[in-house]
Computed example of a mutant assay.
Amino acid sequence: MTDRVRIVEVGPRDGLQNEAAHLSPETRIAFIERLLAAGLETIEAGSFVSPKWVPQMAGTDAVLRGLGARPGRNFPVLVPNERGFDAALAAGAGEVAVFAAASEAFSQRNINCSIAESIERFRPVADKARAAGIRLRGYVSCALGCPYEGEVDPARVVAVTVALRELGCYEIAVSDTIGVGTPDRAASLVERAADAIGIEHVAVHFHDTYGQSLANIYASLQKGVRVVDAAAGGLGGCPYAAGASGNVATEDVVYMLNGMGIETGVDLEKLLDAAEFVAAAIGRNPVSRVHRALRPAAYA
């Protein structure tokens, strides 16, 4: 495995939306600027979910406008429905993401509808995105486990993945939302998803609740995955899953890939700077092991 992996940096969205601190749009822009300086090309800029439900993402329109269009850089934003898409379009979004769960119980508690209803909710979003020339990305939540149902049937994960692909998602992130997956299960699921939609359309998104994320990513790479979601400083969690920790830390992923001779285009030292910046802004230390190993003074 000596080729390139594209890292989708999700810290400014999936990470910060699950942190207690509410950062201003200006601070979020400053965080994203540091991630750009580190060489990251795809950075989730926020979400257009109602601020009533996710106050941490208030002002995402200001974040997008502040960043502006940048050649070779993508700032996808999460949209829950047609109204969210319209707001994203008005703010200048060039890429949007939609999300569906592989668990009926999680879907009901998270977005108050069934899996099938959620897919139908995204159909007008997909139509509008296609008409506007905006790229559409998808997430399948709870792909390796649900806080309410336990283990999730892989066939259901694949079915949701196929449904999102048929909607027009160019890429679907198979997501271990609560971080319970292990390498063999992750590899098997990736293989089944790839058989259904093609490995070039499959990304992986792991949380590190049980410390399995890097092993799961490695196993997924062996199956041909070349797109990995991660969050600088290990930001995040899951509000609907007690005990779920943050996303796998981007710096941990980059260190592993560097050691494997896989190109990412990311400068590790500048990435550590970005992680330190956002950690200071939210009032806690980065949780990545690489950060602790390379900059122990930050933990004194």
Rank of each mutant, 00 (worst) to 15 (best):
M1H: 10
T2Y: 04
T2D: 08
D3Y: 04
R6T: 01
I7T: 03
N18E: 09
E19P: 12
A20L: 07
A20N: 14
A20K: 12
L23W: 09
S24V: 10
R28K: 14
R28C: 09
I29C: 06
I29Y: 04
A30N: 06
F31E: 11
R34G: 03
L36N: 03
A38M: 03
L40H: 02
T42V: 11
S47W: 08
P55V: 05
Q56S: 13
A58F: 06
G59V: 02
R65V: 10
G66S: 07
G68F: 11
R70L: 13
G72Q: 09
N74T: 07
F75I: 13
P76R: 09
G84Q: 09
A87G: 05
A90H: 05
G92T: 12
G92A: 13
A93N: 14
G94H: 15
S103M: 09
S103E: 09
E104I: 06
A105M: 04
F106C: 03
Q108N: 06
Q108V: 05
R109Q: 10
I111M: 12
N112Q: 14
N112C: 10
I115P: 02
F122R: 12
F122Y: 15
V125C: 13
A131M: 11
S141F: 12
G145A: 12
P147R: 05
P147E: 06
Y148K: 13
E149L: 13
E151V: 15
E151T: 15
V157L: 11
V160K: 10
V162M: 13
A163S: 14
L164N: 08
R165N: 12
E166F: 15
E171Y: 09
I172G: 08
I172D: 10
S175D: 14
D176N: 13
G179W: 06
V180Q: 05
V180F: 08
G181R: 02
R185D: 09
A186W: 00
R192K: 12
R192M: 07
A194D: 00
G198V: 03
I199H: 00
E200A: 08
H201E: 04
H201K: 08
H207I: 11
D208H: 02
T209A: 02
G211R: 00
G211M: 03
L214E: 00
L214P: 00
I217Q: 01
I217F: 03
Y218T: 00
S220E: 00
K223R: 15
V227C: 11
A231H: 05
A232Y: 00
G234A: 03
L235Y: 07
C238E: 04
P239R: 15
Y240F: 15
G243N: 08
G243M: 05
G243E: 06
A244C: 13
N247G: 14
A249L: 03
A249N: 05
D252N: 07
V253P: 03
V266N: 02
V278H: 08
A279S: 14
I282E: 05
N285I: 01
S288F: 01
V290F: 02
V290R: 01
H291F: 03
A298I: 07
A300H: 11
